[in-house]
Write a protein that binds this DNA or RNA. Structure first.
Lengths: 205, 205, 205, 205
DNA sequence: AATGAATGAGGCTTCATTCAT
DNA sequence: CATGAATGAAGCCTCATTCAT
């Protein structure tokens, strides 16, 4: 289906994909006009539709493409031997930070895709996201014996994960408000560590 | 400014507002075409612009209108005497559930508005949301003496609030996935109670 | 046809007519929205159409109304006894200045009407203007014996009139460029006098 | 900026420009609907906006385009060696007649543009006209020694130019009234000559 | 493969005019 | 006589998609 596109030299592939990502991140699906994409990519309108049936197909492909890229990184780096929940959390948080550093546009692409509202593509994005979430059990095989016995472990884990989600948003929002390109990762790390300590003191034996 | 609209008989006002809300919730700002709104409301295109200068003004009005409606409910029901954090949390969660029951569309309108990405209105929505958030300190004046001394109270509170946010999203997503119009509130309440118990056991003295 | 309008108390008549003139002068026929007119006049939309079949009828009436007003002034003041061409020219120029002073809006209304381009009304205005021009022979019965014999009197008169037209536009344009509400009439008069002297020296015996 | 348009084959360019001119001349800026233009040009709505950002840009381009066309003709033919005012005037009048013959629509386009009242474009047209007027001093370097000493030369020149302006309008209006496509240029020339003779006799030594 | 001209539906908005009250 | 809510056509402009070259 995308054989035409994939047999392109890599530089041109990247130019097109990055253009599509950039425009999408800046404007969302509806306002990501094909005009803007081809202009940014430096190709002709016709060519875009030569490679991708239509705008929707382009972004569906882009989603999968970005996902692959990120997943590969992820699985290379996460150490599944480590069974302590907080050690794992620390690891994953670090990897997330690195990803944000390494592929900032791609990550922003996902952030937007998660919230996409355009009827045309909303459903397809949601489906993909759902199937990713349910297939990646990065917190499986945790050593539960360390948790206090009077604590519902599933709920505790959820709380901690939601907390880190909220904390991450807080950090991003603050950085944006201060017009920083990236948060100060030292500081973020140290504050994250404080949350971890708090949860350890409270939920572990 | 909206005097024309406000002097309309209430039935028609509601028809128009509900149409605008419905279309917005289904499609987002950009795709909430005025065509769709007037069709849903059963009025002519011209009439919409007789009442509202333009699409943006309509949705800005709608935001304030919905906010008033919700705020009124809220302030009638929250008991500011109660200083125990979890008691207050329980109260507020209950009120949220009731609101969701009473004004499901309005609440969904806000959920979307918070995440709105359409350049045209994003900023204005964010501003309004910000000024609401900073003016309503529903967790002020909490009795902090009950928290463990080795716990950073601000971080603990944030964790709990983020947890309840995450929990609430989980509930909503599950309900949607099961094609339920509303979650089973009994169940939600009981599960929420379990989270509260867990936090009390962990963060209180 | 306009009996309804004419039986209105004069104050209201004037309010409506002045509103129509003002809006027309500021925006031209096409952009003179009935909304703007009724707002300026402080009456309802329906009422305007109660008095005037439609927008076109209103402005056709207005043209005649303004013309009457101006003509009355004109014929009261021009002295047809005076047979010297330049004396008559001086007279007429003075009357024009006075009119401009007394009915600035009405005169501006005519200035615009003469140039009106809106298809809807262009033809009717042009016709009215034509029939006025051809019926008012304010330079009839001139004493031609004073002109040099080697001069074509008709051409000389035309030259002088076109010169005064050009001069008048020049004055108005200058005033506008300097942001003056009215030209400095002293100065205009004295410069006009110089043109008259020049022509006298050149065209008279 | 207009590269897309300019790289079109000339026939189509002309079809579009002539359509825009025709519609403009007939109806003025406000009423020159893009619908009418594309219909007249036999192209789709979208295509017009593919070439020109918007209606205003189209007409600004058209102005410059027409001006170039006319200016080229003008400068090819005017002889700046000739220092006698009337000889120069005769030259220029002849060139004007030829232009009117060669580009009747373009000339009518300017006639209208000069008087344009549409707020959207009035200012820009005025500016362009102003900069043309001030840059083209077609009556510079005149031999003033031939004028009578008791005559204000500036005023004399203005009179003559205004007279020729008036005369030109008279000719055009008459032709239109008689439903002629063009005036009878023989006759016009001979009548113009009579004006020149009259002024020579009166203003020259 | 590659271009970009060409299309036409659909989006927001304005406005003269009508009509129920 | 007076109001202003209501209509719908028409205006400008955008955009995904097609197609001849």
């Amino acid at each position: 289906m995308f054989s035409k596109f994939l047999s392109l030299d890599e530089e041109k592939q990247m130019r097109i994909l990055n253009a599509a990502i950039k425009v999408y991140v800046e404007r969302g699906y509806d306002n990501a006009s094909t005009n803007a994409i081809v202009k940014e990519a430096g190709i002709s309108k016709g060519l875009l539709f030569h490679y991708f049936q239509n705008k929707k197909t382009l972004y569906l492909f882009l989603f999968d493409y970005c996902l692959d890229m990120v997943m590969k990184e992820f699985y290379e780096k996460v150490n599944l031997e480590e069974r302590d929940f907080f050690a794992r959390l620390r690891q994953i948080s670090l990897i997330k930070m690195e990803l944000l550093n390494k592929f900032p546009d791609i990550i922003r692409f996902f952030e937007k895709a998660i919230l996409e509202e355009a009827n045309d593509i909303k459903g397809d994005f949601k489906e993909k996201i759902f199937s990713v979430k349910s297939s990646t059990a990065i917190f499986d095989d945790i050593d539960t014996s360390k948790f206090r016995d009077d604590i519902d472990i599933q709920k505790a884990i959820k709380s901690i994960l939601w907390t880190f989600e909220g904390f991450s948003n807080e950090v991003l929002t603050k950085a944006k408000a201060l017009n920083l390109k990236k948060p100060d990762y030292e500081e973020v790390f140290s504050e994250g560590e404080q949350y971890i300590e708090m949860f350890k003191r409270s939920f572990y034996k």
